[in-house]
C-alpha cells in the first residue's frame, strides 16, 4: 500500500515541470534497451509514474524499479511524445538516493578520486612513462585544494565520504 505524497511530487515538479506531461503511453519503456534485456524489470515509465505520485518511499528507499539501471542512453528523452525530460528526473531521484547513502559503491570510488585528486583517474607512473614514449606532453591538472574548496561548498565531500551501499 502506497500513500500519495503531494510534497515529494511537488518537489520533483519544481525541479522539472516536464514530469506533469507524462500520460503513461509507454513509448519510453518501448524504446529502453535496459527494459528490453531485463524484460521490463527496469521500466522508465514506472519510475515516472511513481514520481508523478510522489512515492518517495518506493523511489528512494525501495528503489523499485532500480533507477541505477538507467544506462543514460537518453533514447527515452528523444522518443517521449510529451517531451518529458526523463533522465533529468532520474538524476534528481538518484541525487536523493545519494544524499541518503543509497547508491552503488562504484560511484563512490569515482567520487572519492575526484575529491582526492581533482580528476577521476590519477596518472600512474606507468602511464606517465607511456605518455612520454608516445611523445605526449605532461598535464597540469587542477590544483587539488581548489577542487576541494568547491566540493566543500556543494557538500559533496560529506556525502561521498559517508559512502554508498
Amino acid at each position: 500500500m502506497s500513500v500519495i505524497n503531494f510534497e515529494f511530487r511537488n518537489e520533483v515538479l519544481k525541479h522539472n515541470a516536464s514530469l506533469s506531461y507524462c500520460y503513461q503511453c509507454s513509448t519510453c519503456s518501448g524504446g529502453c534497451p535496459v527494459a528490453l534485456i531485463t524484460e521490463g524489470k527496469y521500466n522508465p515509465r514506472k519510475i515516472i509514474e511513481e514520481a508523478i505520485l510522489g512515492l518517495q518511499e518506493k523511489l528512494v528507499n525501495e528503489q523499485d524499479p532500480n533507477p541505477w539501471l538507467c544506462s543514460t542512453c537518453q533514447k527515452c528523452v528523444e522518443l517521449c511524445p510529451q517531451k518529458v525530460e526523463l533522465t533529468e528526473i532520474f538524476t534528481l531521484i538518484k541525487n536523493q538516493c545519494f544524499e541518503k547513502g543509497k547508491f552503488p559503491e562504484a560511484f563512490s570510488a569515482q567520487g572519492q578520486a575526484v575529491l582526492e585528486f581533482g580528476i577521476a583517474i590519477p596518472y600512474s607512473k606507468a602511464i606517465i612513462s607511456r605518455r612520454e614514449k608516445l611523445g605526449l606532453p605532461s598535464i597540469n591538472t587542477a590544483p587539488v585544494e581548489e577542487i576541494q574548496t568547491l566540493l566543500k561548498e556543494t557538500k559533496f565531500d560529506k556525502n561521498i565520504t559517508r559512502g554508498g551501499d
Binding site: T91, N95, Q110, V114, T154
Partner: peptide, 23 residues
C-alpha cells in the same frame, strides 16, 4: 592548465547534479 574531471555525466552527475555543474 588546471582542468579537473569534466565531471562524468554517467557518474558524478547522477549522484550530485550541483557538483557536476560547479566543476
Amino acid at each position: 592548465d588546471g582542468f579537473s574531471c569534466c565531471p562524468d555525466p554517467t557518474g558524478i552527475e547522477l549522484i550530485d547534479h550541483k557538483t557536476w555543474l560547479a566543476l
